[in-house]
Nucleic acid binder design. Structure first.
Lengths: 117, 117
DNA sequence: AAGGGATATGTCGAGCTATGCATAACCCCT
DNA sequence: AGGGGTTATGCATAGCTCGACATATCCCTT
């Protein structure tokens, strides 16, 4: 028997839109918070700017909430920062995700620890 | 704000093999148990026989365990049934998955109920 | 006035996954 | 012996997602 380990993926669906929010978008918000720009956030996460931008647009459209405030031009060229709502989502989803992560580990050991040895 | 609902996906990785087991393979085992053949199981799940067969092969190879006993020919043309090990995996993973499912619901309400309203 | 750096978007191609198609082997039954 | 229904497997194709490009716009700084 090979060594096994559990993995999971979490996300949210709106009625018309699949993948309205999720782990990837959450990591993006987190990176935006620490980096201060979408460009830098995409570099940090090793995804294309094109995708980061598209993800952000999709999420905001799906949730109907402005998660970030964006600005073009200026001394630094531009910037993207989280709004208060954005921070709320970042934190709330983070707590949500963490609880699932912990449960996956404990439930894994409890139910499959014997078989997957 | 649109109506949102949480979704999740669970799976197991072996060291060399991604997706050794998971929700899809678990549903396949379950369908095999009730249907008695891979052909019927794939029809029930609305996936191609080709995929069902490939998934089963991949899982058994990755886990190094015979989950099913297959037979060609015969009065019914052939059949596929779960072995004892297969039933153990089906049940154990089912319990594992159910616990995660419940936690997703409660954690969702707890952490995101207010925001996602 | 020109440049720099970031946001904003459309488009084409690569890569991966699932599906469809084709074919073979197998075994009980008529 | 032949047919039916299932397992077994390769291959070619369709679909979808992501990344790479190519531009355009914006505004502060030099």
């Amino acid at each position: 028997m090979k060594k096994l380990q559990p993995r999971f993926k979490l996300w949210l669906n709106a009625q018309n839109i699949q993948g309205a929010f999720g782990d990837g978008k959450w990591r993006l918000l987190r990176a935006i918070q620490t980096e201060g720009s979408l460009q830098a956030a995409s570099r940090l996460l090793q995804i294309s700017y094109r995708k980061a931008w598209g993800d952000l647009k999709k999420t905001q459209s799906a949730l109907g909430v402005a998660l970030v405030a964006k600005q073009r031009g200026g001394k630094s060229g531009g910037q993207t920062v989280l709004t208060d709502k954005g921070k709320e989502w970042l934190d709330a989803y983070g707590r949500f995700r963490k609880q699932i992560e912990q449960t996956v580990q404990t439930a894994w050991a409890k139910h499959l620890g014997r078989l997957a040895r």
